[in-house]
Amino acid sequence: MQSDDTPNPTQDDIKDRLLDAALIHVAFDGWSEATFKAAAEDAGVEPTLARALCPRGAVDLALAYHRRGDLAMIERMKVTDMTGMRYRDKVALAVRFRLEAATDKEAVRRGVTLFALPQHAADGAKAIWGTADAIWTALGDTSEDGNWYSKRATLSAVYSSTVLYWLGDDSPEHTATWAFLDRRIDDVMRIESFKAQARRNPLLMPFMVGPDWLARQLKAPKARGQDLPGSVHPGA
Rank of each mutant, 00 (worst) to 15 (best):
A127L: 01
D145C: 04
V79R: 03
V232L: 08
E173D: 15
E75L: 11
S150H: 11
G168Q: 11
A179D: 12
P55F: 08
D186G: 04
P172E: 07
A127W: 00
P118G: 01
G130K: 04
R152Q: 12
P172T: 08
D145Y: 06
G168D: 11
W166K: 03
F115C: 03
P229V: 06
K105V: 02
A122D: 13
A134I: 02
R199Q: 09
L99F: 10
A72F: 09
V108S: 00
L23W: 08
T83H: 11
K126V: 10
D212F: 00
D212N: 01
R110I: 01
I74P: 00
L228P: 06
R68I: 07
W136P: 02
G124M: 11
W148G: 00
P47V: 06
V112G: 03
W136S: 05
F180E: 13
T48E: 13
D123P: 04
A92P: 02
V45Y: 05
L23C: 13
S150L: 15
R76F: 08
D29N: 14
L203I: 11
L164T: 09
L71H: 14
D4W: 01
D42M: 04
A125G: 04
L71D: 12
S171V: 06
E192M: 12
V232H: 05
D104K: 02
C54F: 04
A21K: 06
T142V: 14
T10W: 08
V188H: 12
D70N: 15
A134P: 03
T35Y: 07
G69H: 08
P202C: 08
P172W: 07
F97G: 09
D186F: 04
A27K: 15
K105R: 11
A179Y: 08
C54D: 04
P47C: 05
V158I: 15
M82G: 05
V26Q: 01
R17F: 03
A22M: 07
P202S: 09
A176W: 03
G30I: 08
S231V: 10
R68A: 11
G57H: 10
R216L: 06
G210V: 15
T80N: 05
L155S: 00
L218F: 14
I24E: 10
A116G: 15
K195Q: 12
D20H: 14
S161T: 15
V91D: 01
P234E: 10
L204E: 08
L228A: 12
A198R: 02
R67V: 07
A34I: 13
K15Y: 01
W31I: 05
K195G: 14
T48F: 09
R199T: 06
V158N: 02
A153F: 13
A198L: 07
K195A: 13
K222L: 07
T137V: 06
S150V: 15
G124A: 12
